[in-house]
Structure formats: C-alpha cells, structure tokens
C-alpha cells in the first residue's frame, strides 16, 4: 500500500505567517504557493483575498434575502440566523442549549479521536515496520477506507446498540484510516542515514524508535490527525441521526423536521467554526512541535 496521503495545504490562508519569513534565515524555503508566485500575491494579499471572498458571500446572502426573491423558509436572512444563534445559546432548541448540544458532539469527536490515535498510531507503525504487520493490517485498512461511515452505521448499531458507544465507534472508524496511513507513510520515509548514524552511536532498537523514528514520523501523524478530524466531523452528523438526544447534528436534523431553516444554518455555521478552530489548533501544535519539518 503506497497511498499518498493528501495534504490540503493551500486550503487555508493562515498557514502563512502574516509577518513573513523570519529574518536571518538564510535557507528558509519560500512559503508561497506556486499560484501566488505567478500572480505576485504575497501571503498577506492571500489573506485579504480570502477575507474579501467571505465578505462577498455574506453580502450576496444578505442581498438575496433582502430583495424578497427567496422565501425565508428556504433561506432566512443573516440577521435572522444571527438572532437565532443568540437564542440557541440562551433558550436552546429541542431540550438543550447550544452549549449542551455542542458539548455532546465534542465529547463524541474527542473520544473517537482518542480511540483512533491510540489504535491507529501503533497500527501505522506496525505496517511501516514489518511485513507481517503490513500483511495483516493493510487489507483491513484498505477495506475500511473507501466505505462511507453511513454504510456501516446500521451494522454497528446492530452490534453495539444505539448508545454512545456506537456513535463514538462510527466516528473512530472514519478517523482510523487517515491516521494509520499517514503514520505508516511517515515511517517509511524515515531517512536511512539518520537511522544508521544513531546505530553507529550505539542506539538500541527501543532508542532508535524513540529518538529517531518517532520524531521523524510526528509531522506525518499530525497531518493524518488533521485529515482524520475532517472525516470525524462529517461522520458526526450521520452518527447523531440515530437515537441521539443531544448533539449539533441531532439539533440540525430536528430543526429540519420542524422546517426551522434558521436553526439548520446556524448549526452548520457552528460546526464549520468549531472544525476551523480544531484545524487552527492542530496547526499551532504543528508549529510548536514539528516546526522544523517546514524548514527542511
């Protein structure tokens, strides 16, 4: 299995530090995307363009609703959605405030992430380090990877019931493949010379792993974690389809039953904002712990 792990790098504008490349770095790689190099748009220009695009969408949304061309049932105006967000936070919807729904969802995603990391990282190392590990685990991961979580959700409900465990399990299963694949790919990429030098300095097998293999693989693991979080959020809503009483996904679906479009849109925005915050969080962790990997 040599599946290239997609790295959605150019996706977010804030990857690039607004202050630019630190001074005194003689061989820092250019951080600009190729497209940016062609158009001559620097990192801060990129950020402004992104902000302007977002503002443009908001204006368009507002204009369409204000003109009365679309009924509020289909698309409520931004003001209505914002007002609804406020009431969701205070009064709540279907038996829970926004914080309670969000808390339930976050708990599921975090529990699933924990499980996926605990199982996925060792599995990835096993695939990357031994033909036996690869032989056993590769088919499992390759089987799991292309199946949409919704397809195995019914099976998991039959096995694990309709409680929290089933929900966490579905999300964890969706998160597992990217973490395993990224870990294995990272391990295969460990520089031979770095390993040999450590062996020449007297490293035992355990020390090789701890002081060379693991740090070398960490950037890859974090990339896998970012991708896994994306998969986790998309699976969350599906997992809350069944027998949930709390959760942002549950809130959105209940709202849809009542045709409360403003709640649906507010819920979507909340999920987007939280997912974005997670993405930022992982990037901060990357910057702190594996900043070296971007410098070459």
């Amino acid at each position: 299995m040599t599946v290239a792990v997609p790295v959605p790098d150019a996706a977010l504008p804030f990857i690039v530090p607004a202050e630019g490349i630190p001074a005194g770095v003689d061989d820092a790689r250019p951080h600009r995307t190729e497209a940016a190099a062609i158009t001559g748009a620097g990192p801060s220009a990129q950020l402004w363009i992104s902000l302007a695009t977002i503002a443009g969408f908001l204006v368009l949304w507002w204009a369409v609703t204000a003109s009365g061309a679309v009924a509020p049932l289909f698309l409520p105006s931004p003001e209505i959605v914002v007002a609804r967000l406020g009431r969701l936070a205070t009064e709540g919807f279907v038996d829970g405030t926004l914080a309670q729904h969000l808390g339930a969802s976050l708990l599921r995603v975090f529990a699933a992430l924990g499980a996926a990391l605990v199982l996925g990282i060792p599995a990835g190392f096993a695939i990357g380090s031994s033909p036996i590990g690869r032989g056993v685990l590769d088919p499992v991961i390759e089987f799991l990877r292309p199946i949409p979580p919704l397809a195995y959700l019914p099976l998991i409900i039959i096995w694990a019931g309709i409680g929290e465990a089933a929900k966490v399990l579905v999300i964890a299963l969706a998160m597992l493949p990217p973490i395993v694949i990224a870990t294995a790919a990272g391990m295969e990429g460990v520089d031979r010379n770095r390993l040999n030098i450590a062996r020449a300095l007297g490293a035992s097998r355990v020390q090789l792993f701890r002081h060379v293999v693991f740090p070398s693989t960490l950037p890859s693991i974090l990339t896998g974690t970012r991708i896994a979080l994306g998969a986790g959020w998309s699976t969350l809503v599906a997992s809350e389809l069944v027998a949930a009483t709390r959760g942002v996904g549950f809130m959105i679906q209940s709202a849809a039953n009542f045709l409360a479009t403003d709640v649906v849109i507010a819920g979507i925005l909340v999920i987007a904002a939280v997912a974005f915050a997670f993405e930022c969080g992982v990037r901060v962790i990357e910057r702190l712990f594996v900043g070296w990997s971007r410098r070459g």
Partner: peptide, 19 residues
C-alpha cells in the same frame, strides 16, 4: 558484527536530527 560506538560515522548528507 554490527555498528558500534568504537567506529564513528560521518556521511556526505549530514543526516542531522532537525528536531
């Protein structure tokens, strides 16, 4: 029979640990 600290190694690519 294997690598050992009695033989130090320097390679063409520095193979330093960037972390």
């Amino acid at each position: 029979s294997g690598p050992g600290p009695d033989r130090g190694v320097v390679l063409q690519t520095d193979a330093l640990y960037p972390w």
